[in-house]
Amino acid sequence: QIFVKTLTGKTITLEVEPSDTIENVKAKIQDKEGIPPDQQRLIFAGKQLEDGRTLSDYNIQKESTLHLVL
């Protein structure tokens, strides 16, 4: 699982696999929060994550925290 922290300070927990794409993660966030993926920007280690890449591409491991910017 990974954590996604929103600007409001809320933390969302997501069940993911390293092979999941960023697009996939955004879809999971939409399921939980109702935020359309095209409004979501995910930041990890100061980098904006691209939809077509996977979590493992960015070396995002379990218990990692991503930041969600709208």
Rank of each mutant, 00 (worst) to 15 (best):
E63L: 11
H67V: 14
T65R: 04
S64L: 04
I2E: 00
S56K: 13
L55Y: 01
H67F: 12
F44E: 02
T8R: 09
T13Q: 08
S56M: 15
L42S: 00
I2F: 04
I60Y: 02
A27P: 00
T65H: 10
K26F: 03
K32T: 09
E17Y: 13
I2V: 07
T6W: 12
V4Y: 02
L70G: 11
I29K: 00
T54N: 05
T65K: 05
I2P: 00
T54S: 08
D38T: 09
T11I: 15
A45V: 06
P37H: 12
D20Y: 07
I22K: 00
Q61E: 12
Q48I: 14
S19D: 12
V4P: 00
Q30E: 10
L14D: 00
Q39G: 06
I22V: 12
Q40K: 02
E50F: 07
D20I: 05
T11A: 05
D57C: 04
P37C: 10
D38H: 15
K32A: 11
E17R: 07
P36V: 06
S56H: 10
D20N: 07
F44C: 04
Y58P: 00
T11W: 07
E17C: 14
Q40C: 09
S19Y: 14
I22C: 03
V4L: 05
G34P: 02
T54W: 04
D31V: 13
K28A: 07
T13V: 11
L55F: 03
R41L: 14
P18E: 11
Q61A: 10
N24G: 09
F44M: 04
E50P: 03
E23I: 11
H67L: 13
G46C: 09
T8E: 14
E63H: 15
P36C: 09
I2L: 08
E23G: 13
R53E: 05
R41H: 14
F3I: 07
I22W: 02
V69A: 09
R41V: 14
K26L: 04
D57P: 00
V69Y: 11
Q39V: 12
Q30M: 14
G9P: 02
L68W: 02
A27Q: 13
K26C: 02
T8W: 11
D57H: 14
G9Q: 04
S64D: 15
Q30Y: 15
Q40E: 02
L7K: 11
L42C: 01
T54M: 10
L68S: 02
I12S: 02
T54A: 06
G34Q: 06
P36H: 14
S64E: 10
S56N: 10
D57E: 11
K28E: 03
K10S: 07
Q48N: 11
T54D: 03
I12Q: 02
K62L: 10
F3R: 06
K10D: 07
K10N: 08
Q40F: 15
T13G: 05
N59P: 03
K28L: 11
V16H: 05
V4D: 01
E23Y: 13
E33Y: 08
L70H: 11
K32L: 11
T6M: 14
Q39E: 11
D57Y: 14
I12L: 11
G46D: 07
F3M: 05
T54R: 11
S56G: 11
K32D: 03
T65E: 07
I43L: 12
V25R: 00
P18C: 10
G52P: 06
T21A: 04
S19C: 12
K5M: 13
D51R: 04
P36L: 07
I60M: 03
L14C: 04
K32Y: 07
L68G: 01
G9A: 04
G46H: 06
I22M: 04
E63T: 06
T8C: 14
L49D: 00
H67A: 07
D57Q: 08
E15R: 10
D57F: 11
I22F: 03
D57W: 11
N24E: 12
A45K: 08
T65Y: 07
S19L: 09
T6P: 04
A27H: 13
E33R: 04
E17H: 14
K5Q: 13
T13C: 13
I29S: 01
D31M: 15
P36E: 07
I43F: 14
Q61D: 09
E63Q: 11
E63K: 08
D57S: 12
K62A: 13
Q1T: 15
V69D: 07
